[in-house]
């Protein structure tokens, strides 16, 4: 059963919810695109229906909501370590199924990798309520069906936005109070076929042929083509790497903070160790490392592909490097290599 809403009743629900929750959704920031007179579609806080931007894929993903680019871990006063307080409001995120799945991928790293849970991640993640946006058409670079991230059933509320007609399925009773409208028959739909279909490589085949895949010539062209700018990893909803930084405040050197900031395996410095040594200096090697993480390493560790098929890496690459194409090349190479 679903509830039919109009813009007014939807806005009213947001208003009610905003007392207890911060509400995030894709938004359009006018004039904030990199190029002049272009907009930036990204995640931001919203307060009404008209703030939500659905006509374009967001350049940045909703991972910022639970994993901010810069996150202070400690404030230092003299030698005291003080953990920053956080807002006690909950978090509602409007997201498409691929992005909703990306949260589960981040969970594996921050909550399940190794013996410890990352408390800074957990304290935000625990607040999250999934308001999933129905997505049946996708965009031209989406391949979520291939990665198995086209469905997300564990939502709190599911929404169909059909121009100004809004239908929702409130699965989590906690939210029933906010949504009132006509009851209608409603079955959430998920995209079943993208414009792009990608065959992911068989990871057992890779394991058996690891050196072959690693030393394959397919990586070489990216040493020349890639500029190691990191856009692909920054926009990726599942990239989770960070570096720690300690600073003291210029105006009061006795105080300072320790924070973590997103890092990228594509960008210089990621593997620098003492003595000026670093690994994967060639950009082709970095490409291999990134791609293999998305489609192989992670799956070996956690049993599920890291990449959710959102296609953002392809959208943002200034050098027109297609991750999707590389994945197909790997699959091809693995299949051919194995038959040899």
């Amino acid at each position: 059963m679903g509830i039919e809403l109009d813009v007014k009743s939807f806005d009213n629900a947001l208003k009610i919810l905003s007392k207890k929750y911060k509400i995030f959704a894709p938004v359009r920031l006018k004039g904030k695109g990199s190029f002049s007179d272009t907009d930036l579609v990204t995640y931001g806080e919203i307060s009404s229906y008209k703030d939500i931007e659905l006509s374009e894929k967001s350049r940045y993903s909703p991972k910022e909501v639970i994993y901010p680019i810069t996150q202070t871990l400690f404030y230092f006063t003299e030698d005291e370590y003080k953990e920053p307080e956080i807002d006690d409001k909950g978090i509602i995120v409007f997201l498409r199924p691929c992005d909703a799945n990306s949260y589960l991928k981040l969970d594996n790293i921050f909550l399940k990798n190794g013996p410890y849970e990352d408390n800074y991640y957990k304290r935000l993640r625990d607040k999250v309520k999934f308001f999933v946006i129905e997505c049946t058409k996708g965009f031209s670079t989406c391949f979520c069906v291939s990665t198995g991230s086209n469905k997300f059933l564990d939502y709190d509320v599911f929404f169909r936005f059909d121009n100004d007609k809004i239908t929702c399925d409130v699965k989590n009773d906690e939210f029933s109070y906010a949504f009132s409208g006509k009851e209608v028959e409603f079955t959430p739909e998920f995209i079943e076929k993208n414009e792009i279909e990608v065959k992911l490589p068989d990871i057992d085949k890779i394991s058996q042929n690891l050196e072959y895949v690693f030393n394959h010539e397919l990586w070489d062209e990216y040493t020349k083509r890639c500029i190691a700018c990191g856009r692909c990893t920054v926009s990726c909803p599942t990239c989770s790497c960070f570096s720690m930084q300690d600073i003291f405040y210029k105006d009061n050197p006795k105080c300072g903070e320790r924070r973590r900031v997103w890092a990228s395996c594509m960008v210089d410095g990621f593997t620098d160790v003492a003595g000026g040594h670093s690994y994967r200096q060639k950009y082709g090697e970095r490409m291999r490392f990134k791609v293999m993480h998305k489609i192989y390493d992670y799956k070996k560790r956690f049993g599920t592909t890291m990449c959710v098929g959102c296609g953002r890496c392809d959208d943002v690459c200034p050098e027109y490097i297609s991750f999707i194409k590389i994945v197909s090349k790997v699959t091809d190479a693995v299949d051919r290599g194995e038959s040899k």
Binding site: I109, P115, S243, R260, V273, Y279
Partner: peptide, 24 residues
Amino acid sequence: FERKMSCSIGKCGHCKINETYVCL
């Protein structure tokens, strides 16, 4: 092994080689 490490608890990704985390 010695690798660049930021977190040492399997989160930051710096020490990863294939599916192996050197810190873990």
